[in-house]
Computed example of a mutant assay.
Amino acid sequence: MPLAYVVLKSGHAIQLTNLHFSCTYGGLLEGVPTEDVNTSIIEGLTASAGRDFPNRPVHVVPPAREYPDEQPSRSRGRVEFMPRVACVGTFEADAVGPDADPVWDRSWLTVVWFQEEASLDGIKDALADLAWGELARDMTL
């Protein structure tokens, strides 16, 4: 039984089968986040998702970024914040390929995204524009 159903703007209905929330800056021990720190966080989440779900493609929804300071520091770069909650979810849906078997094949995708609250409510907005047909991979059950 799925954790949630999401209908994308394209009309494609997908099912959330696994979800992990974490604090975006939970591992930041000192300093403030910069573009380099945020890039490292995104790359780490993407690599981890690929290891956890090795047969599924991974897609990152580009996060919103805020810049509270006008000027970058001389040594570390400009302060840059992403939303507070990092999310990794696995989704499945009907197969998308023209040669797929409608009974035995399903499409799968792991998605990394960021949102302000650890809530299922934010998922539909965060993934509304997801191009499922282009990103997901069909696999036989």
Score class of each variant (00 low, 15 high):
V96F: 00
S107D: 03
D125Q: 12
G122P: 06
E117N: 09
A95W: 05
D121Q: 13
D69K: 06
F53L: 06
R84N: 12
A95P: 11
N55C: 11
L29Q: 15
L3F: 07
L141F: 11
L29N: 15
A118W: 03
S107N: 05
Q115S: 05
G44K: 06
Y25Q: 00
Y5C: 09
E92F: 10
D94Y: 08
D105Y: 01
F21M: 01
F53G: 06
G133I: 05
R137Q: 10
A4D: 15
A95T: 06
G89I: 02
A13K: 15
Q115M: 03
D36R: 08
D121F: 10
I123W: 04
G11V: 03
V103H: 09
A118R: 07
R56V: 13
Y5Q: 15
A118M: 07
G26I: 01
P102W: 00
F114E: 06
I41M: 03
T39W: 09
D129N: 08
V103G: 04
P57D: 01
P33Q: 00
G97L: 08
A47T: 14
A136L: 01
E117Y: 10
H59T: 11
F21A: 02
T140N: 12
E66G: 10
D69N: 12
R76G: 12
A126E: 10
L19Y: 04
T34F: 00
R74G: 13
V6E: 04
R56C: 15
L29K: 15
A100D: 06
A128E: 11
G11K: 04
W113K: 03
L109R: 03
V88G: 02
W113G: 06
T90F: 03
W108R: 08
D99P: 08
Q71R: 13
D129R: 07
V61K: 02
A95S: 11
F91T: 02
D121K: 15
A47V: 08
I42L: 06
